[in-house]
Write a protein that binds this DNA or RNA. Structure first.
Lengths: 120, 120
DNA sequence: CGGGATCCTAATAGATACTG
DNA sequence: CAGTATCTATTAGGATCCCG
């Protein structure tokens, strides 16, 4: 049996730590559709994210080399984001997961209801 | 552009809310290897998880119909867990993601270092 | 053995105000 | 416009004790 305890070097933990937060996966999918997008464009597409969390999420994705950030030094400032090659290479796997989610969401919701009903 | 704001019905958000927590993905992968496992066996395999979080995680997976739970009413109690068909159907997609993580982990770590160095 | 109940802390996320 | 800084609320997670 494999060793699942070394969090530091475990690729499983490594990948879910990055995309498993509240917004990263969503931002990646939005950037895939938009190709090149300004900060405010992303924000408009995901209205429910706060400005702070969008900043934090983009910085984390940038640090991992999944998203590139281009600053145009003008006033008012203009900053563009787009997927890097590494970021693009991740997307098929995300879509695979999303596809499964779409196919199973209805049944899962039903299971949750039944499970909750059993407890009462 | 798609609507990414309805969290309740968004399959993306739905799937990451389930597998994006600290332990779910790991438990699913362990159960795949072990096939049928008792609570204590899973706990031994993932030493770093607390008893409480293993309980919470297994309950959530059970509620979603990804894992089945069989109780043998004896003393001391014996409880066995295994993947359901739905759980098994999710695993290829997780492996797809893990594969990507393995391939890219080294480069990502390097990117993080460089990014951190730029800030100083 | 497989939890449940309780308490506590740390990490995460949101609101708001401010700025080059 | 694209953030930063600060503060607060919420949540996830861990430690400990208990019980059939």
């Amino acid at each position: 049996m494999k060793n699942y305890n070394n969090v530091e070097n475990c690729p499983v933990r490594n990948v879910i730590d990055r995309i498993g937060d509240k917004w990263s996966m969503l931002v990646l999918l939005v950037l895939e559709e938009g190709e090149v997008m300004r900060f405010s464009e992303i924000h408009k597409t995901i209205e429910t994210i706060s400005q702070k969390m969008l900043t934090v999420t983009l910085k984390a994705l940038e640090a991992d080399g999944l998203v590139s950030r281009t600053v145009y030094p003008q006033i008012p400032p203009k900053v563009e984001y787009q997927l890097t090659e590494r970021g693009k290479s991740l997307l098929p796997h995300l879509h695979s997961l999303v596809g499964w989610a779409v196919d199973n969401m209805v049944n899962i919701k039903q299971s949750r209801k039944e499970y909750a009903a059993e407890l009462s």
